[in-house]
Computed example of a mutant assay.
Amino acid sequence: MAGAVRVDHGTAAGTFSLDGETFEVENNIWVVGDDDECVVIDAPHDVEAILGVVGARRVKAILLTHAHDDHCRMAPALRERVTAPIMLHPDERPLWELTHGDAETGEHLWDLDLADGVTVTVGSGDDAVTLTALHTPGHAPGAVCFSAPALGCVFTGDTLFHGGPGATGRSFSDRPTLEASIRAKLFGLPADTVVHTGHGEDTTIGAEAELLGA
């Protein structure tokens, strides 16, 4: 039996570079699935670390929250290893091209576009779980969170952290847009929804709403 869908977690360390600066960072690796199949959320730093969380399961898709290099750098290499499509919001193309370049053939691009409301289902039968893409621009223009109500959680990438919104002030980011996205798309989720972030520890929607006075 494939069992119930669950959330598995790992970490990988590397660098984040943008606007001529480079920083050491540790990213969370999130894998959602049952014993047979899964989806990977973001592809940071180290393919082997990601595959260590995946195990022997079939990867159905690689879901990217955004295209900062620490979240997408290993996506093409992971795609080659697991033969799964990369899904990314098309507004992220300028950031994607900073890392992966532009190829007229399209071979260096992602495979499927994400948009607000796009769903991806993992698992089988009554145990299947649906992840819904929520377009949350601000940290990046095509930033997306993945809501999994059946699991009581949302995967926010760098849109929302324990302690508040993600960083802005760099290219392609905007603080008012980010806060508006969080209020419109995330703070409507149940207060006890667990927030699985791109970096650092979990939080809840209720805790972050209280911090922002929502």
Rank of each mutant, 00 (worst) to 15 (best):
G14H: 09
V129L: 09
A103R: 08
G55I: 10
E48W: 07
F16V: 07
G3N: 06
T168W: 04
P85W: 08
S171Q: 11
H68N: 12
A140S: 15
G33W: 00
R79W: 02
L64I: 01
E92A: 01
D126Q: 04
M74W: 04
K60Y: 04
M1F: 14
A67E: 04
F187C: 14
D69L: 13
M87D: 03
T136A: 15
G152H: 02
A209R: 15
A180N: 14
P190L: 11
N27E: 07
A148F: 05
T15S: 11
V195H: 00
V54T: 12
L131D: 08
G20E: 08
I62F: 07
A115T: 05
D8H: 09
V47Q: 13
R6H: 00
A75R: 03
A209T: 03
E104N: 00
R170P: 00
A143D: 06
I86P: 03
P94R: 04
S181N: 11
V40L: 01
I29F: 04
G106V: 03
V82R: 11
D36R: 15
I182R: 08
F146W: 15
S147V: 11
E37W: 06
E97D: 10
T168C: 13
E208M: 02
L151I: 10
I41G: 02
A128G: 07
E179T: 10
G14R: 07
D116E: 13
D35N: 12
F23S: 10
S124C: 05
V120L: 06
T119E: 15
V40I: 06
D102W: 14
A209G: 12
E208R: 03
V120F: 02
H162L: 12
A214F: 07
N27K: 13
T105H: 07
D127Y: 01
I29W: 04
T22N: 08
P90I: 11
G106N: 05
E107L: 14
P90V: 10
M87N: 12
T193L: 10
A133V: 11
E26C: 09
I41F: 13
H199V: 14
